[in-house]
Write a protein that binds this DNA or RNA. Structure first.
Lengths: 169, 169
DNA sequence: AAATTAATGTTATAATATAACATTGACTTA
DNA sequence: TAAGTCAATGTTATATTATAACATTAATTT
């Protein structure tokens, strides 16, 4: 059962799918990881992670603050940025640099630099695992530069949005 | 002569090199391109491009404004952002998303999405051409997503900085 | 020379992010 | 368990990055 979920292509994020399953799987992994690493899973952290999991769209810090405010949480900027720092540091979330926005990690557990596909029509994001996205640099560059992290964000149109366009025309 | 310059690896940006040559080659290409495309090469645009060419470091819009101000140009934010928009749109400059900073393009002439190597010690940047950096996506992803642009920024330590560190230790 | 358009100038403000310090609450340890 | 410690949250202020909207100037066309 779990195996089937893991094997699904990231492109499912752009399509109709059983999102409740996404949500629950991620939330379970979050709990498990916090327990294992002895990280404090506070109501605020839980709520922000929950907000990031809502759909497969990245959200801005100030959107998060709005939502926190509506739910009775304190909501000055540092509140959001601190929790986001924690989530990113621990590998539970990522920042999409191109849009100054944040998204839950699809492969949580440790810090890493994934590749994102971002649809500019529906704004949905898919995080690709290393297996599905590899940056090939030439030998010379590899030998002359010690890579520590990478920002790889691909912007375009997902299949669902593309089909909608085709139908309209 | 010119051929030798073109063939040099991007990693030269991280080392001591004849920067006057970089500057002149880029400036010549800028002039040539503007002429060919009938773009107006105004004093302001020229100055901003010149600032971006100073060394191989990305600079922020407000740094540009400071420098413009010192040289007697008007220097309110839109001044910088408009020229930067122009330069980026025409393929003469790029934005480094990770650092909200801007850099002259090394392969000017048309809009494109290059790969950048950015040294976090010396802040120097090298723009790689397509030949030296390829993002390999799996077949499924490629078929399900129509790529329009990409942000690829590799952060790490360049060889020069690495060697300095080694010597110190 | 008048009309048009592109570029620059200016004012105001929006959007994103961090610094610095205060308070609370949980956890240790004496 | 009371005192001490530290991590998390709360709060105020401000820094940094970016854009909207409108005015003026300069170049180009008619």
């Amino acid at each position: 059962m779990k195996k089937i979920q893991i094997k699904k292509a990231v492109s499912k994020n752009f399509k109709k799918h059983n999102h409740k399953l996404c949500y629950e799987t991620s939330m379970k992994a979050f709990h498990k990881n916090c327990l294992e690493k002895n990280l404090k899973l506070t109501p605020l952290r839980l709520k922000v992670f929950e907000l990031l999991l809502k759909d497969h769209r990245a959200i801005g810090a100030y959107q998060i603050l709005d939502m926190l405010s509506k739910e009775g949480f304190s909501s000055t900027p540092p509140i959001a940025y601190r929790v986001l720092d924690f989530l990113i540091e621990q590998g539970f979330a990522h920042k999409i640099e191109r849009f100054n926005a944040f998204i839950a990690c699809s492969h949580p557990g440790s810090k890493h630099s994934p590749t994102f596909m971002i649809c500019r029509k529906c704004d949905k994001v898919a995080e690709m695992c290393e297996k599905d996205s590899r940056l090939k640099l030439d030998k010379k560059s590899l030998s002359e530069f010690q890579i520590e992290e990478s920002v790889i964000e691909i912007i375009g149109i997902c299949k669902s949005c593309n089909q909608l366009e085709t139908i309209k025309c």
